[in-house]
């Protein structure tokens, strides 16, 4: 889970793949990605990204426990900390409009 989830999270954010969209002003949920509606305030995608990542991460994690030890031993343990570390600068890059806004 710790290896696949950071990758999945980056993909979800870059490709905008939330499981659902939440509209906080009206407390309304919609499946998948939905744009903010006129007069209904902003739309929130973060909850949907987190839900996507947790579900996919959980499924992959359960599958990984069924793999034989000869396979799991070949997965470098360093990926557990390397992938979240690499994901942070990518996430910071996606926020470029905030850093460069005049």
């Amino acid at each position: 889970m710790a290896i696949t989830s950071p990758v999945m999270y980056v993909i979800c954010v870059l490709l905008n793949l939330p499981l659902f969209t939440f509209h906080p002003a009206t407390n309304r949920f919609a499946w998948g990605w939905e744009a903010a509606r006129s007069g209904e305030g902003p739309a929130m995608y973060w909850y949907g990204w987190v839900a996507t990542v947790l579900i996919v991460g959980l499924i992959v994690g359960i599958v990984a426990t069924m793999l034989p030890a000869s396979v799991t031993r070949k997965i470098p343990l360093a990926l557990v900390w390397l992938l979240p570390m690499l994901a942070i600068p990518i996430m910071a890059y996606t926020l470029m409009p905030f850093w460069t806004h005049p």
Binding site: A2, V50, G61, P84, I88
Partner: peptide, 13 residues
Amino acid sequence: EHVATLGLVTLPA
């Protein structure tokens, strides 16, 4: 929000 999520998914390991 991104860092908090990345930390969350690192917790099982």
